[in-house]
Structure formats: C-alpha cells, structure tokens
Amino acid sequence: MDLTHLRYFQLTATCQSMSAAARKLGISQPTLTVAIRQLEKHLGTTLFLRERKGVRLTSTGEVLLRHATQITSLVEHAEQDVRDLESDEVGSFVLGCHEALGAYFLPGFMPAFLRHAPRIELNLWNGTSPAVTEAILDRRVDFGLVVNTRPHPELIILPLFEDAVDFFVAAPQPGEPEVTEEEAHRRLRVGPLIFAAHMAQSQKLRDQLAAEKLLPGRMLPCGDLELVKSLTLGGLGVGMLPRRVAAYGQEGRLRRLHPSLPFFHDAISLVYRADGHRTLAAKRLKDALVRYGRGLGFSTSS
C-alpha cells in the first residue's frame, strides 16, 4: 500500500470533497482521483460514495480511515524520533570499562553528565580492556575506556590520561619511619606479593623483579583488583595496583613501597568504532568523556 495514497485518502475523507483535498495537497483533482482509484483497486473495494456535494465514506472506507489515522500517527512519531536522534541530544549508549577503572572514573563523570544531558541514557558494561575492545568491535559497546589499547583499523583511539601500576603497602603508622630502599627490597623478598593474575602489567613487573633478584617466594594471585587493594590495606603484603586504583576512596592509606622500584606505565584511552553513527547525542557523550578524562592528567604519585 502506497503511503502517499493513504495520506491522500485520509485528507479526502476529512475534507469530504475531492476538489478541496486536491487544493490542500497542491495537486490536480484528476491526479487525486487516479490515486484514490488505485488504492481502491489495490484493496478490492469502494472507499467513497460520490455525491453531488462531495464524497462520503463507505463502510470499508470508515475502517480504512481508522487504520490510516493510526498508521500516519506512527509514521509521524517515527520521523520525529529519527530527527531527534540526528538533531537533539537524545539516545541510549553503552559505556564499557574495567570495574576498577570505572570505580574512580565514573563517580566523578556520571552525575554531572546525566544532569546536563537528561535525555541521554547511559548503560555500563564491565570487563577487561581486551574484552571491552572486542565488545566495541562487535558493536555491543558504543564507547570504551581502555588501558594500553593497540591500534586497530576499525577503531578511533583518543588518549585521555595516564596511570602506572606500582608496588603498594599499607601506610606506616604515625611515628613510624619511612621505608628505605633496603627495607623495600626485604619486604618484597618476604612477600607475599599480591596481584591480579589477569593483568599483563603484573607479569611484566614480576619479570623485572625476577631480573633484579627481588621476586618473593610467596605469591598471592587474585582475580580482582579490589581484592588486591583490600588485602594490601589489611597489611598482608605488597600489592601491585594502578596508582589511581590505590588512591581512590582510601586517600593516604596506601603508599608506594619505594620510588626506586620498577613500575609499569599505563595509558587510558577512549575507544569507539570509526564507522559508528555520529548523532548529536553521541558527539555530546564523546566530548564529555574526553573533556573529563583529559582533565585527570598524569597519574598520581601516591
């Protein structure tokens, strides 16, 4: 069924006159008459009774008018929704990141963003950085906060801020001396060394410790950075943590074991597909993430 013909029919039924409907549509009356006849032929029915003063709907015409009103209303709503997505800050997006990264990034970002963009819906997707990258490529995630991402021809990568994976211990009590380099080496050798097993940075730092003959005999691999943080805060041993993860929510309670020890530099980027649909809302979200992320600057010294 031709949507244009349906609109012609609807206006003719409203005007109850072919000539009046033709004038409002800006077409000739013969053109309108041909369109109505084609619609009647398609449906196998007569839609109007022609009278001296105009036209009147038949019973089948009245049924079609009810449906035509619903159809044109749906089409108008669909057109408006599409226009809103293209020209207004309306949309729904999935933001992916590692839980530990999100724990210090999102509390500062989301309240202000959602307040200033109330018609943008933001959903969260958690996983490792490689998993987030894969989800972006699969179009399950729209934007990702990714650590140490690699270039990919289908991705846009915008550097945001820096961090570093380092060695941490519970902060000394008041009056206790600062940890010397010799004491730091001793603590490492004694262990346990607590780390998130899934992090590539952890393996690289353990390799460096081994090369410097500082690798402890006792290891405690964990599946989660928050558990590493909790155990380190409890004084169990030396924890390997990103500096920002160590700092958030526990200011001053964790300290770098010693600045002379090796650390692994991290670069956090905003990642999204190069062929993603660039609506006004998508641009607003991307710009807000970049602005907030770049405002974080370099990693904390802890």
Rank of each mutant, 00 (worst) to 15 (best):
T12S: 15
T14Q: 15
C15Q: 15
S19Q: 13
A22Q: 06
Q29W: 02
P30I: 07
P30R: 12
P30N: 12
I36R: 05
E40W: 04
E40M: 04
H42I: 00
G44M: 03
R52C: 01
L57P: 03
T58P: 00
S59K: 12
E62V: 06
V63I: 12
L64F: 05
L65I: 01
R66H: 13
T72W: 03
V75Y: 07
V75P: 00
V75C: 06
E79V: 05
Q80Y: 08
Q80S: 08
D81L: 14
V82F: 12
D84M: 12
L85F: 01
E86G: 04
S87T: 15
S92Y: 00
S92T: 09
S92C: 07
V94A: 11
V94K: 11
L95E: 08
L101S: 07
L101Q: 10
F105L: 09
P107N: 13
P107I: 11
G108R: 05
L114R: 15
R115C: 11
P118K: 14
P118H: 13
I120G: 02
L122A: 03
N126P: 00
G127Y: 07
A135W: 07
R139H: 15
V141I: 13
L145T: 03
V147Y: 02
R150A: 12
I157F: 02
P159V: 12
D163R: 09
A164K: 08
F168L: 08
F168E: 04
A170M: 08
P172E: 09
Q173I: 00
Q173M: 10
P174L: 14
P174F: 14
E176I: 02
P177K: 11
E178P: 05
E181K: 07
E182N: 05
R189L: 15
R189A: 10
P192K: 15
P192N: 14
L193A: 02
Q201Y: 06
S202H: 10
Q203W: 13
R206E: 08
K213I: 01
L215R: 06
P216W: 12
G217N: 13
G217K: 14
L220N: 03
P221L: 12
C222D: 06
S230W: 05
G234C: 06
G235Y: 13
V238Y: 04
G239T: 09
G239K: 09
P242W: 04
V245N: 07
V245W: 02
A246H: 03
A247H: 10
Y248N: 10
E251F: 04
R253I: 01
L261I: 10
R273V: 02
H277S: 06
H277Y: 11
A281P: 00
A282W: 11
A288C: 02
G297E: 09
S299V: 06
T300C: 04
T300K: 04
S301K: 06
S301H: 11
